[in-house]
Simulated assay, not measured.
Amino acid sequence: MTPTYDPTPATSLAIGSDADLAWVRHQVRQFAAEIGFGLVQQTKLVTAASELARNTLIHGGGGQATITPLTKGSTPGLRLSFIDTGPGIHDVELAMRDGYTTGGGLGLGLSGSKRLVDEFSIDTKPGEGTIITLVAWATGVPGTRPGAR
């Protein structure tokens, strides 16, 4: 059985420049801190968000990020989605392989981001774009609930 999430309204952020990447990182860290993520969890989530936002800009030609606070029972979490209308990912399995790169980097962006979060999914159609969604749950904060936004 799939767990039921109790989402609050999402915050959308444009990704069209390097300045937007910095703003996405800042907002993800702020949301994570507000709902009770520890410093290590915040760092993991911001790292994953930074990689995916940069991919949205570079490979997808820009797009948007959405940040949605969630709860599962009394456990707070965040859902982050990175959406573009770029060329899509032609071979997801290859793109998820450690060391694979199309941009000259280390090839750890997608696979590394997946390892840093609790849930990770890719919805892509070649020629139509990509949506990458991740979810991270705060640990060690019983009874904490996200604040209204």
Score class of each variant (00 low, 15 high):
Met1Thr: 14
Pro3Gln: 15
Asp6Pro: 01
Ser12Val: 08
Leu13Cys: 05
Leu13Ser: 05
Leu21Pro: 03
Leu21Arg: 06
Val28Gln: 00
Val28Met: 04
Val28Lys: 01
Arg29Thr: 04
Arg29Ala: 11
Arg29Asn: 03
Phe31Trp: 06
Glu34Lys: 12
Phe37Pro: 02
Leu39Asn: 08
Val40Thr: 10
Lys44Ala: 07
Ala48Tyr: 00
Glu51Ser: 03
Leu52Ser: 02
Leu52Glu: 05
Ala53Ile: 01
Ala53Thr: 05
Thr56Gly: 00
Thr56Ser: 07
His59Pro: 02
Gly60Pro: 09
Gly63Ser: 07
Gln64Ala: 12
Thr66Cys: 06
Ile67Val: 15
Ile67Pro: 01
Leu70Met: 05
Thr71Gln: 14
Thr71Asn: 12
Ser74Asn: 15
Thr75Gly: 08
Thr75Met: 10
Gly77Arg: 11
Pro87Tyr: 09
Gly88Thr: 11
Ile89Trp: 10
Val92Pro: 09
Glu93Gly: 12
Glu93Asn: 15
Met96Asn: 07
Arg97His: 15
Gly103His: 06
Gly103Ala: 02
Gly105Thr: 13
Leu108Asn: 04
Leu110Thr: 05
Ser113Met: 07
Arg115Met: 11
Leu116Tyr: 10
Phe120Ile: 06
Ser121Ala: 07
Ile122Tyr: 06
Asp123Val: 14
Gly127Trp: 04
Gly127Thr: 07
Thr130Arg: 05
Ile131Ala: 08
Ile132Ser: 03
Thr133Ser: 15
Thr133Asp: 04
Leu134His: 02
Leu134Phe: 10
Leu134Asn: 02
Ala136Ile: 02
Trp137Ala: 03
Ala138His: 04
Thr139Gln: 13
Val141Thr: 15
Pro142Arg: 12
Arg145Tyr: 08
Arg145Phe: 09
Gly147Val: 10
Gly147Leu: 13
Ala148Tyr: 04
Ala148Glu: 09
Ala148Asn: 06
